[in-house]
Each structure stands twice: as C-alpha cells, then as structure tokens.
C-alpha cells in the first residue's frame, strides 16, 4: 500500500479529501431524494458519465503532460462519421475499427504537431477542433447515420453482461487500464517528469516528445471510444456530437486535481470528479430541475470546489 501512495505526484491526502467530499455528496443526495440510492439509479449515474468520463481520462493524461486538448469533441464526431461511412456494410467490426482508427490518427496528428513541430497545444488542438468538425460534416454531408442494424455495435452501448451494462464495463476497463498505466508503468513516471519540468526531463534522457505524442494519441482514441458509446445509445451517429465536450472534460480533469501547468493530477481523481458531476446531474434530474439551471449549478459547484481545493493547498 505504501508503494501505491508514494508514487503519485499528488499525495493520498488530497485524493482522500476528495473521496470524503464525494461520499458526503452521495449521502446528501440520498437524504434529499429517496430515489437516489437505488441500484438502478446508481447505474444511471455511472452510465451517464461514461462518455464524458472516458474523454476526461484522455484530457487528464494530456494535462498531466502539461498540454491541453481542445479538439476532443470534434475528434469524437469526426471519428464517428469516419466509421459511419461503413455503416451499410453490416460489419460492426469494420465500423468500430474505422472509428477507433480515425480517432487515433487525429490524436496522433495533434501529438506530432505539438511535439515535433512545436506548435503550442492550445493552437494546434484549436485548429484540429475546427478541422475535425468540418471534415466530419464533409464526409457525412452533414447527415447522421444509423447503426441500429449493427448488432455488436449496438451491444457495446446498450447490452448487458451478467446484468451489468456494457458501457459501464467498458468505462471501468478504460479507467483501470489508464490508472495502471500511470501507476505501474514506466510511462507514468516519465509522464509526471515531463509534465512537471519538460526541460529537466529531457536533460535526464527522457524522450519527452514521445510521451507527448502518446498522450495526444490516447486522447484521440478515447474520444473515438466515447463516440461509439454515445452513438450506440442514441441509435444515430451524429456529425454534431460532442460540441462543448472539451470544456466539460477540462473541468472534470481540473476538478480531479489536474493543473493547466502540468505535472499534477491523477486518474483516480478524475474518476471521482466525473462521479461527482454524475451524482450532481442525477440529483438535479430527480428533483426535476431544468437542464439549463442544472448547467448553472454544476458549473458553479465545479468552480467552488476548485477554489476550495486551492485554499486548502495554500494552507499546506
């Protein structure tokens, strides 16, 4: 256990504090609404955050590396539309592979632009944001596609295994995978070094370009996975999907402890942050609060928590 604690740039104390906050929220929610603490509803909470949660994981990796990825929403849509070109072919695997491949390539291009050509990630991914969205519209002629005949494709978003919704399983697998990657693999050690001080990391023989290419590629791949889950659930692949997702993902990553300056943040923090957002939205839904008011409340709470977190950090 000590092993687990020491290795992250963030101390366990910080995550612990955050966990308490989360359970406090769950407790409050269950007191406010009796419908909250039911098995079905808790599944709803998690299912609702799978899409943005997976995107936030990619965002967290990019932010720990000291960069930012504004293109996630557009890349998700682009990847979906690339896959949608094959939707009439009756092969789920083709559609899924093309979707994932397109996301991966878009992410790789971001990574190469930032790491090899030295374009700032803010500008590079702002460019990709516009280009990917536009390309998605071009290849789909602005029309949504309908994957409802693709059995396996739909299974990923709507199926259940042993009573557990498949998207939740996929989400948990991605979370566990990324968490392990950051915690147990040399990749994680290099990631924090590069994010904290790219210059010193480079002068220690770490290939910081490679790390940056890797995190952007993963971010693109995760955006594509998010598209699969969302398109399957809605039964349509929509070129307008994912607008504004970059801001929610950044908010979740920051809420989870990531810093715009890099070197900070954890995967468990991001997970808890996504769950907090999920619980808040769910509770407001149960209370019948309008979607617009929900946005105001959630955004307000994000800013407050980040502020309080900053205060706490200052005191230490």
């Amino acid at each position: 256990m000590i092993d687990l604690v020491q290795r992250s740039a963030i101390s366990i104390g910080e995550t612990f504090w955050f966990l308490i906050l989360f359970f406090g929220l769950v407790l409050a929610a269950s007191l406010i609404s009796p419908a909250f603490l039911t098995f079905d509803n808790l599944q709803n909470v998690i299912r609702a955050i799978t899409v943005i949660g997976i995107i936030s994981l990619g965002m967290s990796l990019v932010m720990i590396a000291g960069e930012i990825d504004l293109s996630v929403g557009s890349v998700a849509a682009f990847a979906g539309m690339a896959g949608a070109q094959f939707v009439d072919g009756d092969s789920s695997l083709v559609v899924i592979s093309v979707t994932l491949g397109a996301g991966l390539v878009a992410g790789l291009i971001n990574g190469l632009g930032v790491a090899v050509f030295g374009v700032s990630s803010l500008i590079m991914t702002l460019g990709t944001l516009a280009i990917a969205r536009a390309l998605g519209n071009v290849i789909s002629r602005g029309q949504a596609a309908y994957p409802t005949n693709l059995e396996f494709y739909m299974f990923l978003a709507r199926g259940k295994i042993l009573g557990m919704p498949v998207p939740i399983i996929i989400f948990l697998i991605v979370v566990a995978g990324v968490w392990a990657l950051v915690r147990f693999f040399s990749f994680g050690r290099k990631l924090y070094a590069v994010g904290s001080n790219p210059r010193a990391a480079g002068l220690s023989g770490i290939n910081s370009r490679l790390i940056k290419i890797q995190v952007f590629t993963l971010s693109g791949l995760f955006a594509a996975i998010a598209n699969l889950l969302q398109s399957g659930r809605l039964g349509q692949i929509d070129p307008a999907m994912g607008g504004g997702y970059e801001l929610t993902a950044i908010a979740i990553a920051v809420l989870g402890g990531a810093s715009l300056f890099g070197g900070r943040g954890t995967i468990e923090g991001t997970l808890i942050a996504a769950l907090i957002i999920g619980v808040l939205n769910n509770l407001l839904n149960l209370l019948g609060v309008s979607i617009y008011i929900q946005q105001v409340v959630v955004a307000g709470i994000i800013v407050s928590i980040v502020y309080l977190n900053g205060l706490r950090a200052d005191q230490q």
Binding site: Q6, A9, A193, S196, R199, A200, S204, I206, G263
Partner: peptide
C-alpha cells in the same frame, strides 16, 4: 529548472 524536477521526490529525481 534544468537539473531537477522540483515537484518530484528524491527517489524519482535520482532514478530519472
């Protein structure tokens, strides 16, 4: 700025 990653531990810096 160049020799150390200040926010990381002694273990991490020596092992970098």
């Amino acid at each position: 700025h160049e020799g150390l990653v200040l926010s990381l531990s002694t273990y991490d810096n020596v092992g970098m």
